[in-house]
Design a protein around this nucleic acid. Structure first.
Lengths: 341, 341
DNA sequence: TTGTATGCGTTATCAA
DNA sequence: TTGATAACGCATACAA
């Protein structure tokens, strides 16, 4: 059943049927009803492909993330999809993994699908080395690019994020103010927000974070700043080895809840009392925080707010309105039982 | 840049360009190269809308779930999307929530988008009351429907799932065999697999589970079988109130890890030693199991296997091959520290 | 207020 | 081996 069939059954032209469906131009109440009755009776729905061909859009937005099974990213996708749906858009989901090459590949894939926009979820899409971001700028030449949780400037690139640097600064300061002296920093991503958080940590310790721009990759040569990308157990083992080497610390600030969970496991294994012997702060305020024992103090980076803002911005862009290139929200420390400040 | 532009630049007809792109019929090596060079030079990609219109498919599959932020569902979506991509299909993601009405609405939405198939993720899509499944059967009239984690029979409906009943039976039996006498069962979904798991629990206790078919909703009137749908804290409070009322139990079997986490919090609050005073078993073997302390014994229902099978089946169906209507895998108990059998 | 005719960019059929 | 042309189903400019 297509528009021609409907027009025949209703005894009108296809133009009239189209008008009824799209509800814009004038159609007499009588014919409108006639057409609607036929549509109802035969359960007609317009062919989205034909419509897409004519209008050159299918009202679909590509959502690209590294790994949608990550609880944090999964939440972001949920919020984004929900907001898109509210505005009558669909979400095409792709997972690229963490390699630059596959990220590029997937961005091009989405481009070839002619989605109305591309949303990059997760700060791992923005690299410290700006050359590696060129593919994003290129994509932005054909379609608006929205980034959740990272900042990159360029035409047609819109970012929604939290002030991770300040949040980490505050958290670290609070630890210092409550008497901690040796604070270990754990991170698992050298992404945009990864560097921001680290910057905040260094700020609090009055370490010049500009050095981070120089030694590309091996950012800081300091035992108190540890890069670990691995499972909970691997994080635990890593800390074990540091501990056995004699490194002293009375607090751990992390860039991700999963790292903090690993730290908790480490503390338990070594019979360190939390938070008396060791304070721990996570990041993301994910469900994991409530699963651990003791429950995890963490930084809430307002994911829902950020995601809603992202879609609001996108809708503005698509409607040709003035839209902000960068919107920054303020993260918040959620105090639970792994700290005593 | 469209196919006409390419044909002009290459000095051939659009038919030839189309042939080169689709690589089926014969094209001389010389013209093929000419065309490919132009395509390369101008970065031409075929318009998917036009292609979709002609072929009546966009190689897209709709994935529908209740809530993609649920860690378990998020994992399923990840596996499904990855497998689809491997077969050159895209995934359109929709979240319907748990209401029947909105589920129906979203199924119709996906139908109107003309996706090549619809995948229902999560057993909450199959209700015990079969009338409520009619919308699925209806959808299957126009497009293959795949169900992950539940069984529903009907033409064009393909299910991939685990033997949840047997797994719960085994887990409960193990508790009984290791000397537990009063086992509490906690569940949060009256879905297909929800009922299966409960059935397995009742089997182990030699209770006739057929009564479940009668009192529609209020399945079993027994203090040891508790339906709770809520947050970790709500689960904890619910158990607190049972405990204070004097209900005695030495083990808790749950239908979801989140319930088990709530049980763990309850135990801690009441200074019950795990697993000495109380054993707890979760379900799904999600990341939450490793976050808790002690770590949670849980049932692994082979999500990845199930998802891969789902897509394999789908590809078979789309290629017109013989495909199994129902594929059942065997779940496995993953023993950690909340049990001592 | 309604109808006619055209374009959107492919793929596929038929001829050459 | 290649080219011309008809679908595919809709939206819309223009005519009436």
């Amino acid at each position: 059943m297509n528009i021609y069939d409907v027009s025949k059954k209703a005894g009108v032209s296809i133009a009239t049927v189209s008008r009824v469906i799209n509800g814009n131009s004038y159609v007499s109440e009588k014919t409108r009803k006639k057409v609607l009755d036929v549509i109802e009776e035969y359960g007609y729905t317009p062919n989205v492909f034909a419509r897409g061909l004519g209008l050159n859009t299918m009202n679909t937005v590509g959502i690209l993330c590294a790994d949608s099974s990550d609880p944090y990213i999964a939440r972001a996708i949920f919020y984004l999809q929900q907001e898109l749906r509210r505005h009558n858009y669909d979400a095409l989901l792709c997972c690229s993994g963490y390699e630059l090459e596959t990220k590029q590949k997937y961005v091009n894939l989405l481009l070839s699908k002619r989605t109305d926009a591309i949303i990059l979820v997760g700060s791992n899409f923005v690299a410290a080395d700006d050359k590696k971001n060129q593919y994003i700028r290129d994509a932005a030449k054909s379609v608006p690019v929205l980034i959740v949780n990272a900042a990159l400037d360029g035409p047609n690139i819109y970012c929604s994020l939290c002030n991770d640097r300040h949040a980490t600064y505050q958290a670290t300061k609070s630890l210092l103010n409550s008497g901690h002296e040796k604070i270990l920093y754990l991170y698992n991503a050298k992404s945009y927000s990864g560097m921001e958080k680290l910057g905040g940590f260094l700020d609090a310790l009055n370490i010049d974070s500009n050095i981070s721009d120089n030694n590309n990759g091996n950012i800081i040569n300091n035992d108190y700043i540890q890069y670990i990308h691995g499972t909970i157990d691997e994080v635990k083992e890593h800390l074990n080895s540091l501990y056995k080497k004699g490194l002293k610390f009375d607090a751990i600030v992390t860039a991700d809840d999963i790292l903090a969970i690993g730290a908790l496991k480490f503390a338990k294994e070594n019979r360190l009392s939390i938070p008396d012997d060791l304070s721990i702060i996570g990041y993301n305020n994910s469900i994991l925080c409530q699963c651990s024992d003791p429950e995890l103090t963490s930084i809430d980076n307002k994911l829902e707010t950020v995601c809603i803002n992202c879609i609001t911005t996108l809708m503005g862009v698509l409607q040709g309105k003035e839209a902000p290139l960068k919107t920054v929200f303020s993260a918040e420390i959620v105090k639970r039982d792994t700290t005593r400040f």
